[in-house]
């Protein structure tokens, strides 16, 4: 079975989240797409159509595995049964990348189905580090940790998020998934600068980028309150921030997240192509700069 599959490694191109609405289109047309990302929790049944479609799609495309339920940032011990199901999905589909969130979703056995924020303190740092150690050891793969979108500020935080992430990487050897829309959302919501955040981010550990759409609202004081809704196109300022990010990280696999009000395949694929355009113009600009410096460019 595995011998029939394409290589697991994700190319530094645009990719999209795999949606049931698009299964048939993908299998019938085999569109040119860098990769598909799946939510681990959607493929945890024993059998049935979701696995049937994913098996077929995995033959032609690399996939990245994105967990939303491990509650890495929580104060409780990890749910061992769930961790074991994550490993099963990883073993079954051999994803090129595996990621989870700097967030929590379970507390006292209740699962809240949202990526909830945590204060950044010495205590939460140790909790997150312990959880990532446990995940990486059990699943047997490196995990990428994703920066969250935040709507609130914790008074007790003693770390900047970028420093918190840097410290986690240092202590666990995990990689990072940089969600550029989350950067824009969190920075706007807290009154910070998204550009500064990207400039301070430990980019040398980034292995994947996420882009998605957000909904603009305001809080009771009239300040902007952006909601990470994943229900529309990527906003123009987020595309600009993405170009700035790619200049720092170099080309990276880049996912378009569109999870609600799911568009037609063509609209979604077009968004992924825009990521390819940004990556391509970065590569061309690099080549031109290198030429102007008179660097030796080896022939292909």
């Amino acid at each position: 079975m595995c011998a029939q599959r394409v290589n697991a490694k994700l190319p530094a191109r645009g990719g999209v989240g795999l949606k049931a609405d698009h299964y048939h289109r993908i299998l019938n047309d085999k569109p040119d797409m860098g990769f598909f990302e799946i939510h681990a929790e959607n493929y945890m049944g024993a059998g049935g159509p979701p696995h049937g479609y994913l098996e077929a799609i995995r033959r032609d495309y690399p996939i990245s595995l994105h967990g939303v339920g491990l509650s890495i940032g929580g104060a409780d011990p990890l749910n061992k049964e769930h961790l074991s199901r994550v490993k099963d999905v990883a073993d079954r589909y051999d994803p090129g990348l595996f990621s989870e969130h700097l967030a929590w979703s379970t507390h006292d056995t209740e699962y809240f189905n949202d990526l909830l924020p945590l204060p950044y303190t010495e205590v939460t740092l140790q909790q997150v580090v312990d959880h990532i150690d446990e995940v990486q050891t059990f699943v047997g793969r490196q995990m990428l940790l994703e920066n969250p979108s935040a709507y609130v500020i914790f008074k007790e935080s003693t770390y900047e998020e970028t420093e918190f992430l840097r410290e986690i990487v240092k202590r666990t050897g995990c990689g990072l998934l940089l969600d550029v829309n989350n950067v824009f959302v969190s920075a706007t919501n807290s009154g910070g600068s998204p550009e500064d955040y990207v400039d301070r981010f430990p980019v040398e550990h980034v292995q994947e980028i996420h882009l998605g759409g957000h909904a603009p609202e305001t809080d009771e004081l009239g300040y902007p309150l952006l909601i990470d809704a994943h229900d529309r196109k990527v906003a123009d300022p987020v595309w600009s921030l993405y170009a700035r990010t790619i200049d720092r990280t170099g080309p990276q696999p880049t996912l378009i997240e569109w999870d609600a009000n799911i568009p037609t395949w063509d609209i979604l694929a077009y968004e992924a192509e825009q990521a390819d355009v940004v990556i391509q113009s970065h590569i061309e600009a690099q080549a031109k700069a290198s030429e102007m410096r008179g660097d030796h460019v080896p022939s292909a």
Binding site: V152, I153, F154, K155, E156, L221
Partner: peptide, 21 residues
């Protein structure tokens, strides 16, 4: 300690999580 930009608790901001859940 869960606050908005003025340093005070914000119902609207925490409410995003209530609503999402």
């Amino acid at each position: 300690g869960v606050v908005g930009r003025d340093g005070h608790p914000s119902e609207k901001r925490y409410g995003v999580y209530r609503n999402n859940v």
